[in-house]
Every structure is written in C-alpha cells, then in structure tokens.
Design a protein around this nucleic acid. Sequence first.
RNA 1: GGGGGUGUAGCUCAGUUGGUUAGAGCGCCUGCCUGUCACGCAGGAGGCCGAGGGUUCGAGUCCCUUCACUCCCGCCA
Length: 588
Amino acid sequence: MKNYHCNEITENILSKEIKLSGWVGKRRDHGGIIFVDLRDYTGIVQLVFNPEDKELFMKAESIRSEFVIEIRGMVNPRLEGTVNDDLATGKIEIIVSSLRILNKSETPPFKINDDNVNEDQRLQYRYLDMRSDKMQKTIRFRSKLIQIIRNYFYSKEFIDIETPILTKTTPEGARDYLVPSRVHPKEFFALPQSPQLFKQTLMIGGLDKYFQIAKCFRDEDLRSDRQPEFTQLDVELSFTDEEEIIQIVEELFALIFKDIMDYKDNLNFERMSYHDALKNYGCDKPDLRNPLILKDIKELVKGVDFKVFSDHVNNSTSRIAALKVPGGISLSRKNIDDLTEVVKNFGAKGLAYFKCEDISDIENGIASPIKKFLNTEVIQNILTEVDAKNGDLIFFSADSTDIVNSSMSALIKDLGSSLNLLSGGWKFLWVLDYPLFEQDSEGNPTSIHHPFTSPKNFNDLSEADVYKIPSRAYDLILNGNEIGGGSMRIHSKDIQMKVFELLNISEEEMNKKFGFFLKALSFGCPPHGGIAFGIDRLVMLLLELDSIRETIAFPKTQSSSCLLTNAPSSVDEKQLRELSINTTKSIK
RNA sequence: GGGGGUGUAGCUCAGUUGGUUAGAGCGCCUGCCUGUCACGCAGGAGGCCGAGGGUUCGAGUCCCUUCACUCCCGCCA
C-alpha cells in the first residue's frame, strides 16, 4: 500500500484505503468522536476516529501533539456543512481504521507553526522549528536553488572541485578561524575565508572552468545578514573577460527567476560606475528601486558664512550634499529627530533641512533652522539644483566625504522604506569601474576587493595617485544588497608583486605568505577571472526574509554560538596538552 | 571595542509613585462532551521575576556588576 503525503489526499481517491504517516498537529477530542490534524511537510489532513472500535478509540485518546503516527483509513468526503475552506484538504477527511503510534513526544515548548516565538527558543529547539511551514519552505527552496546552480554550471561544462577546509592563514582581510595542528606544535591551519587562491591555482592547473558551492569562514562580528560560516557560489574561468562572466551570471539568474521565483518578465540588469554610485547614492550598492538621489552643492555654498558648511567648502576630502525628499514636508519633528539619530550613527553631527512650503516665496515659504545663515540667492540656487517643488523636504549633510556618503546612504535607505518609496520589483545592478585601492583608516592603500584583482591596464600601476588606478572588478547588486563580486585577476607574477608592493608588503613578507602562489604564477598562468555569490544572503533576499539565520539550518547567534549544541565549549586539559596549547583566560 | 533594545509560568506578554498571597492569554493535567477545525464546559497544577551584589522597615520595580538574546557602529581584503 502506498504511503501518501498529506497534500496527495484529494477527492480523486475517495473511498480508497490509504496509508499515511506524520506528526500529530492537533487533537480535538469531543468525547464521542476525535479529530486529529495529521501533518507532514506537504500539509495537513483531518483524521476522524469513531467510537465503534473501542481499542482504536482508546489509542486515539492517548495521542498528543507531535506524536509520530501511521494510520490506515478510508478517504471520505466531509459531511455537508463541515467543509473547511481554510484547509487545502478541507473537502475530505480520513475515517481511520488502524493506528500505530510510531513514537511519543514530550509536550513541545511551542506550537509548530506559531510565528510569535522568540528566535532563541526556535534555535534551541531547531528540530521543532524546522517542522514549520516557513522553515520547510526556506530550506527546500535553498536546496532547489543550489540544484539549479549546479545543473546550470554542469551544462556549461564547468567542473565542481572541492578546495581544502584546512588551509593556510591569509593575512589582511578578515580574521581567520584557526585550527591547531597536533603534529606541528605551535602551528595552525586556518579555515578558508574564500577559496580565492585555490581557484586561481586551478586555472594555472589547466582546469579552465571551475565552480564550487563552498563553505567559507570569517571570524568577525555578526549582523543580521552575516554569519561566521557561510556558503558561497565560487566561479572561475580562464581565457575570459568581464563580458563573458557577466553574461554567464545574467543567464543563471534568468534561469533561477524562471524556475523557482515564478517570475515571468525578463530580468533587467543595469550598469553603473563605482564613481556614479557614490556620487548619486553615497554607497557602492545602491537600491535602484529608491528614487532618492544626492546632489553636490559645495559650489553653491562657497561664500556662505556658516561654519557647518564653510569648514568643508575648501577641504578636498569633504563633501556637501543635498537630498530632496518629494512630499517630505509631511515629516514630523519627531520623524526628523529620529532620522538625525540615523545619520549620527555614521558619524554625522546633525541633519539640517529645508521645508519647502512655497518655493516662490523664499522669505516666508521656506522653513529651516539654518535659513538665517543663507542669503536668498544661495537658497534659490539650491532649490534650482535639486529641482524643488512645493511640499518637498531637503536634507543637507556636510562632513568628510566618507561620513556624508555613509550617513546619507543610510538616510536614503531609511526614507525609502519608511515612506514607501520603493518600486519596480527586482532591480539588478552591475557596479563597474572600481578603483583598485582605497585608503584605510590609517591612511594606507588597501584593496577594495582583494589584492589579486587586476588593474585595468598594467601600466596604470605607475600612476602617481594610487587611488586613481582603475581595476577590472565588478559587483552584482540586487535591490541594494551586494549578492556577488568578482574581477579579472592578475596573471603575471611581476604585476602581482607590484600590487603587493603598492600595498606596502615587503618582498620577504609576500614570499612568506604567498610564495607558493607567486611561484605558481610564474609557470604559465592563463588570463582568468571569476566571481563569487553569497548563497545564504541570496536566499534571504529572494524569499524576503529578515535575517540570514532563517536561511541556514543550524545558524549561529550574534555572539557566534550555537544554541542547539552549545558550541563552542571548553575542552579537556588533555586535549589542550596534545595540541600544545595554553589558554590565558580562565574558563567561565 | 562602542551605542540602543529585551530578559517575569512551558510559550507570548502585563505588572502603576518601591508596599498584603506576582497576573492574563495560549499550552499542559483531570473530568464531561458524537462534527470540531483558535472545539466547548468545569476544575487543577505550574514562578530562584536571567544571575550576583547593594540601597531600604520592605525590591519584579531603584543603583552597581555580570550573563544571554537582538539591532546598529567599528570590523567584514
């Protein structure tokens, strides 16, 4: 006899005897008749226990929530007036003839599909949480996504290669998770932050088209979209260029959206330079669904005797920007105070604004706490620059370029969602023309992507201003979230050494850390490039989930612990001795 | 490393200016109930108020320390 799933029980198999197994969702005992909602991952079906069979009925009285049962019974149409339209199987029910209790269950700490349970409870009892419709849907979606990705790359004759999890520590970048070597006292493996050097080495090894669904590890602080171990789609090709990689990726996303997103329209991939992204949106991952854009007004406030502006007018590392919010006049004092807190988070000192009540009358029609510092001509020029209309609110930010950009992009993001300004569904954006380097907090050059990214032209490396050297990097942004990034790589040892040199890495240091790779580059490395995507974050975006933890079966909490297993945990002295390890902090 | 929020029954929460025996809904247990599907009715059990310290005649409530969870900044080549 076939073992059915709950959603397979339909009016097509009426009066047929079937076998069904699953979990008890809910028992409704009416004394003379018992109803049980039987649940599996496909849905719920109602079982009916009648009192004629005394033994069966008594057994049914003993079952409780989350018992695992197997039943045999007859599929019956429901009596008139007892049809449940809220249930997919609400037109039928199963008259049970035999019941096997396959396993009992403790009373669960929370109901399976209760969506009002705190996350720490759900993580502690992840196996119960997983029985919920939402988790089932997410985890199965993730599996299908990975299946599509694998099939796509296999069909394009890419090969799937596993790279090591125990590998060599990579300096710079994120902190590594370290694994002590027992055989080599005082030496450590590191878990990979990404398979970057291995995949490039594969190219040198003549494995032209590589992909991997790779686990990566970074020992940094967590966020709602960041986990210490995560899964990356990693791709690398030889004898290729940016356009080919972009085309491969766009084709993949077209397939994903068609197959599992139920999306009929053609996807539209826009392109924007890094420079334009920062200028218009203050960040390199703009959300194109958001209509708000920044305008530079430094030139317009040159002669203004107002310290907030004048401090930055002649500073080349400062920016003065205006942000017009159409209809923003309706924002209350409280709203604006809250937004001020948002920008203060990013180091901004405050948030000045104009309320445009009547732009034809600058004397009386513009309300602003900073109006007294500005003459009519300056105000008029600003209104013209942002193309203000009556009812608009204009925010101002003046500070170092970094602070203006980060605070104003946060403001744009906040206003976009709080004022419901987002429109247009799925917006993909390629950000191109990144510089090779940016300045770190100590004023030294650091790679925007990673030090293996190729400069646009090799002789660009002799450019006097290192921050102007263009690179061959590209990022893919979806609705304001970075989902993938890649580049054409350096394939010449000399260029690679030159880039290390510009990053102030001594020859001795580069040989110690990357010697194996520099040597490999010298043995006929083909031109190559690739890209990588964060799978967890992609699932989160596609399913519009609040946190990356929802996409991972067994995620870590914000303090990088696992509530299910209580990892990490202390270890025996004996284990430590074997590894030649002394701990410096006492165990809590 | 820094800032914000939360922590009271199994779950989700309320708890006033410090003042008798700390509450509710759901869940759980017992009994009754033959058409429910948020079943109904009656009764019942269940609390180191996250932990430690302090102020006070008296602390869930005030103060200090600490832990856990969470959001954000830094960080994440």
